[in-house]
Design a protein around this nucleic acid. Structure first.
Lengths: 157, 157
DNA sequence: CTAGAACCTAGACTGCGATCTAGATCAAGC
DNA sequence: GCTTGATCTAGATCGCAGTCTAGGTTCTAG
């Protein structure tokens, strides 16, 4: 989200952009803006080896990203926000990084995660039903003065 | 889940049970078994004031719970596992504890949470679609040798 | 040339939600 | 009476996933 550091205001041209260069070449701040990740998080991801390659640098030592990195980070975001731990994401990145030949393994990993997400949705659905039941009970209680399904200050006793 | 401490094996009769006593009277271990929370978690919950009352003790200082506590913990579990932070659960418990008169507030809190849960389910659904798309792509790739929608070792370049 | 973004590294710190430890005490069965 | 298992308190520790700090360096605009 590019909030930390001494942010604000954006360079007109990305660092690595030569005169009529072709492949974008994005600064860390631009990637942060594009992905919703903080610059801190991007550096953290890199330390954790979540990228598909060593991120190249300018002569001055600044990271230069490409659109493909942003695309990959988009998937990372989806995997993360759906509950995949960093460690597993790292494993997936490792598989992709090591090139063709392990697609079945990647598939298995993704399938496992898909199952986990479906399970999580089901759990949430179950909790939602209970919670919604309580909401309905309270709505009725507030409306009519009944007290069924609503908690008393001291249980039983 | 009653795994920690030096668990295993269960007392024949709960601590506070007089000869022909009526209202159960559950030990912390029994409540742990009944709720799926660890005994540690139960003590932690108590420190955090998540109970609807001060949990009474035997002469020897041991906690004595009642079925109503287990029931309440059941709702707590649902709220927690659906993502409600301890702090908010604590607020809810406080409202219930302070007795009738604030039902509208309790309702509002639950409605807010219900909305949050629905939003979370929607998010997960969105991620699931993406992930499932990848799974399908990989399935096809593994089956046919195509490579669309599958990540190459080095992005673009 | 200079100011001020934006960036760099290494490493410390945060918040949440438990979970575990140590060192007692309590209770039940033999 | 003694052993064994369950519980007690207070406080330390943990795992995760960042987030932030300190102390520079690099760029770009004016």
């Amino acid at each position: 989200m590019r909030v930390a550091d001494t942010d604000e205001g954006k360079p007109t041209g990305p660092p690595g952009s030569a005169p009529g260069a072709a492949p974008a070449g994005l600064s860390i701040g631009e990637v942060a803006d594009a992905t919703g990740l903080s610059v801190h998080a991007l550096r953290f991801f890199e330390r954790e080896e979540l990228f598909l390659r060593p991120v190249p640098r300018t002569a001055g030592g600044r990271r230069v990203y490409e659109p493909a990195d942003v695309e990959w980070l988009g998937l990372c975001n989806r995997l993360r926000e759906s509950g995949m731990p960093i460690a597993e994401l790292k494993r997936f990145a490792g598989l992709v990084r090591s090139g063709p030949g392990n697609e079945a393994e990647r598939l298995a990993l993704l399938q496992t995660h898909e199952r986990a997400v479906r399970a999580r949705i089901a759990e949430l659905g179950a909790s939602l039903e209970i919670i919604h039941g309580k909401v309905v009970a309270y709505e009725k209680h507030v409306r009519e003065g009944t007290a069924a399904g609503v908690w008393a200050p001291t249980p039983s006793r």
